[in-house]
Nucleic acid binder design. Sequence first.
DNA 1: CGCCAGGCCTGCACGC
DNA 2: TGCGTGCAGGCCTGGC
Length: 271
Amino acid sequence: MPELPEVETTRLGLSPHVQGQTIRTAVVRNPRLRWPVPKHLAQLVAGRRIERLERRSKYLLLDCGGGWLILHLGMSGSLRVVPADQPPGAHDHLDIVLESGQALRLHDPRRFGAVLWQRGEPTRNKLLRDIAPEPFDPRFDGHWLFQHTRGRRAAIKNLLMDQRLVCGVGNIYANESLFRAGIHPATAAGRIGEQRYARLVDAIRTTLTEAIRAGGSTLRDFVNADGKPGYFQQQYFVYGRAGEPCRLCASAVRMVRIGQRSAFYCPRCQR
DNA sequence: CGCCAGGCCTGCACGC
DNA sequence: TGCGTGCAGGCCTGGC
């Protein structure tokens, strides 16, 4: 799920049900996520009002006034709003119970997700400190990427997934963005010029924007439904399409391993 | 059974 | 000795 578009879609879907709500309590059924869920989470959050639901990179941030609840969905996490008395299913590790009688429920089979409490500003948290500007921040531009990749021999696809360089992009959208920019995923980042980086930035923004738009149609699924979290099925250009024809030139899409992750690309459109 | 999966921190080896 | 860099490992469960 959770690259930036999925997290943003989650934020948009949950926001009306969560914002302005006072937290009644927190129920931790399984604290064993990527890091242990804070021991006394209920005491930390009970009685606090959720002022706003924000997002930074792939992190969801709940402004609780004086402290922030930081959520990360890892590989398999999802959040939904359910009636607080709805029986939890397997892997429903945490509920944030609201005064409305609903609960924000975290589901995460692989438990790579995280729930953290941060007093004061969330940017004080070590995990958020070194993250690159948001993709739509004007500071994130071709020059930013050009500057930070000089002398670097790593494949551009790996650096696209480095949150200190590009934030919010994971394996799927790294592949998709590189396709849109016409850049081969194995290209050494240091050998790409500023013009091509400007094009890559455009490609990243387009890719993320379209994914968020695709997710918008599934927002209702974040509330009360008992099925899948409602992450949308998008039409990808290359991701997961090894052997299938490129949507632009009909060449067979290829898959290779780069940095222990699957890379998909069109050998004709991407150089 | 083995392999794969949308993330990301940590620790190691290396070169300057 | 200290970076920055590039890798590999590890955390988990579920599906094919």
